[in-house]
């Protein structure tokens, strides 16, 4: 296959694979604790980092990582302390991050609007060797965290109050989830772009939920779906000469629709199996048992 002989496509496919694993992995926890759009906000914040990278002639990926982690920490602090006005503060953070990024890009010599849009919407074919090293290191961190600490993270995302009474360091783990999400944003930035990052954290999980019944299965299937759409989307973008980010996200949505359509008959079959086991019969009056618990 000629696509694998091209160095830039090798890099692109490896980056796509890593995004396909990491974004749904952290996304499962975010969806579980109903913060599905956290990735979107962090994507906005990361843009300031990209702008800073251009302005200071540093690697945009590493600068975005630093700024995004700082943004995630601030978000967690807002969640702890600013419950009442939390959403206003978050809005300031997100849109400030976006505006700051655009401004900084314009101030720098090397930043152009073409560059800006490659970060906003992804430009997988321009992933450099240096970018790829950064993506590999960051992805390793995300995978280690989401798999290695899965029980702890499951506990805090499922029931924070209970987790705290179990003695888990809930604040530390919450912070870790936020930081991991921030890191994932920068992993995915080159592939799907900052504006579409959140899609890869949420849609594979939503698709997986249509058929999975356990957390473990949801997690595994979401990662499988993530890898499928990122790799196939990247290959398609090469052959059809279309933008990678948009292709990947549209593929993910397509898979979601297919799985949703499949889920309905599946659920019916499951329900049918249970119903067949026990037939309902109407009893004669006065045959209520104590187990019915009808108290009059």
């Amino acid at each position: 296959m000629d696509i694998l002989d091209l160095a830039f496509m090798q890099r692109a496919l490896l980056a796509a694979l890593l995004v396909g694993v990491t974004a749904p992995a952290i996304g499962t926890y975010l969806v579980q604790r109903r913060q599905a759009l956290m990735g979107d906000g962090l994507g906005h914040v990361a843009l300031t980092g990209v702008g800073l990278g251009f302005l200071l002639n540093e690697s945009p990926v590493w600068m975005a990582t630093a700024v995004c982690i700082a943004g995630a920490v601030v978000m967690e602090l807002i969640r702890w302390y600013g419950r009442t006005r939390g959403d206003i503060a978050l809005a300031m953070l997100f849109y400030g991050g976006m505006a700051g990024g655009v401004m900084l890009m314009n101030l720098s010599d090397s930043g152009s609007s073409a560059n800006l849009s490659s970060y906003l919407f992804g430009s997988i074919a321009t992933v450099s060797e240096e970018d790829l090293v950064a993506i590999c290191i960051l992805a390793a961190f995300v995978i280690l965290t989401t798999v290695g600490l899965r029980r702890q993270l499951f506990a805090i995302c499922q029931d924070e109050e209970f987790a705290r009474v179990t003695g888990l360091p809930v604040r530390m783990l919450n912070l870790l989830v936020a930081v991991t999400a921030a890191v994932t944003v920068t992993v995915a930035m080159r592939v799907v772009g900052l504006l579409l990052v959140s899609a890869l954290m949420v849609i594979p999980v939503a698709a997986s939920q249509q058929i999975a019944r356990s957390f473990k299965a949801t997690f595994a299937l979401a990662v499988g779906i993530g890898v499928t759409v990122t790799v196939s989307g990247t290959a398609t973008s090469y052959y059809a000469d279309v933008p990678s980010g948009a292709t990947i996200v549209l593929f993910a949505i397509g898979l979601f629709v297919v799985l949703t359509a499949l889920a309905t008959p599946l659920a019916k079959r499951r329900a049918g199996r249970t119903a067949a086991a026990e037939e309902c019969t109407l009893e004669a009056p006065g045959e209520r048992t104590a187990a019915d618990d009808v108290r009059v």
């Binding site: 499962t28 969806v31 579980q32 604790r33 109903r34 599905a36 029980r151 702890q152 499951f154 506990a155 995302c157 499922q158 029931d159 924070e160 109050e161 209970f162 987790a163 179990t166 003695g167 888990l168 999980v205 939920q209 999975a212 019944r213 356990s214 957390f215 473990k216 949801t218």
Partner: peptide, 22 residues
């Protein structure tokens, strides 16, 4: 009642296992 969470399905075993973490 637990805090509003659980946007992802979880089995009885998974939920009860989190009580064993400590």
């Amino acid at each position: 009642r637990t805090t509003a969470a659980g946007g992802v399905p979880a089995t009885v075993r998974e939920v009860v296992s989190s009580g064993r973490l400590a």
